[in-house]
Design a protein around this nucleic acid. Structure first.
Lengths: 204, 204
DNA sequence: CGAGAATCTTGACGTTGGAAAGAGGCGAGA
DNA sequence: TCTCGCCTCTTTCCAACGTCAAGATTCTCG
């Protein structure tokens, strides 16, 4: 709905400014510390201004989550493309992109996969999440093209679960509490290669 | 102000009553819908009564999470013991217990693994979480007793991540959206056996 | 240029978490 | 037995929250 205007309105691009401010706020304070009024404050508008652009605070959160899924998908494909090589290499690369996005946006990542976001299931949000899921399934299927549909699905479950579980536990401090960032990356890569090996072996 | 004698002025077991009420409330309303005053209401006391037993709302949440980890550990060992068989069987059984607890307490499970809880890192909470981690690591190590320490750690990462990731994604609706409960259990068991197979293969 | 729509502000309501102060119940020592 | 002091709970108050309603401002377009 936002279009370029010769002269900005009262604010002009409030919706965009609110999502930007909200995203930063979310990373700073976490889901429970997230408030609509603080978003408005940071965007330089009154506390009731957001109401026009977002029906409720959950609506804003849903918008943030939606954008998060879009960026997650972009990070996955970018990293997969960067990983030259066979389908297994792409699968690993996609996992790297997944983890990198999560590590760079921990609170947003948690919001995306919390049922709080699902409470206000926007069609956009569902579609964005579905796109990520399809990306994962496609990478697994490409690695084991001759396997049965059932095997493909089980391996997609497996790949998705390991990648997501590892980074989720890591961000929560449940894995590698005091390890260096470098050591954690090594552990992450080791997990990804073990995952890919299992997938490929199941497909052959 | 005559007090009705139905309840003594001293509640007696307020702390326990608050955690019980809080747990139910958490499952009903989710983390964002959780309020201290509603807990007090359900426990039949004034809104400021909880302050004596819990320093803050985060303190109550931390207590709930702590108990959650305790019960999670109990569910894991119970199910592992029930699974007669070799170490790999125990590993799978422990995963079943993990998933069963999560499925039975989805909101609590999410709280336990959200950084919101970690914001108020109680010593008890850290210890309870650590116990669960040790349980996981021990089950993996028992399945591959002759492997190197590095392999054991990597396989512990792997097993923990797959189990946690699968059930977390499932509870969020990211896996098996419209599948029946029976089909989901089958998928979960398939994941667990694939996980155990990978672990055992890496160890031998 | 003026009317109407879009955008933002101001003010209000009910609710929240938390602090402060007071009151009721209970045990220990006289 | 009585009373003092501590523990527990209530009452009252405050700032901040999300949301609504109404007013003000600015843009668009006839």
């Amino acid at each position: 709905m936002a279009r370029p205007r010769t002269q900005p309105y009262h604010h002009g691009q409030l919706r965009e400014a609110l999502t930007t401010a909200g995203r930063a706020l979310l990373e700073e304070k976490g889901i429970r510390g997230f408030t609509l009024r603080e978003c408005a404050r940071r965007a330089g508008v009154s506390h009731a201004a957001p109401a026009y652009h977002f029906a409720s605070i959950d609506d804003l959160l849903a918008a943030l989550a939606t954008r998060g899924f879009d960026e997650l998908a972009a990070a996955m494909t970018a990293e997969a493309d960067r990983a030259s090589g066979d389908a297994a290499g792409r699968l690993i690369g996609q996992g790297v992109g997944y983890m990198a996005f999560a590590a760079g946006n921990p609170a947003l990542f948690q919001l995306m996969f919390s049922r709080e976001a699902n409470r206000l299931e926007t069609a956009d949000l569902a579609a964005a999440a579905e796109a990520v899921r399809r990306l994962q399934a496609a990478a697994v299927e490409a690695a084991i093209p001759h396997a049965s549909g059932e095997i493909k699905q089980r391996m997609a479950d497996f790949a998705t679960a390991s990648v997501h579980g590892f980074i989720a536990l890591l961000l929560d401090g449940q894995i590698g509490g005091k390890d260096s960032s470098r050591a954690l990356k090594t552990r992450g890569l080791a997990l990804l290669s073990a995952m890919a090996e299992t997938v490929v072996r199941a497909g052959g």
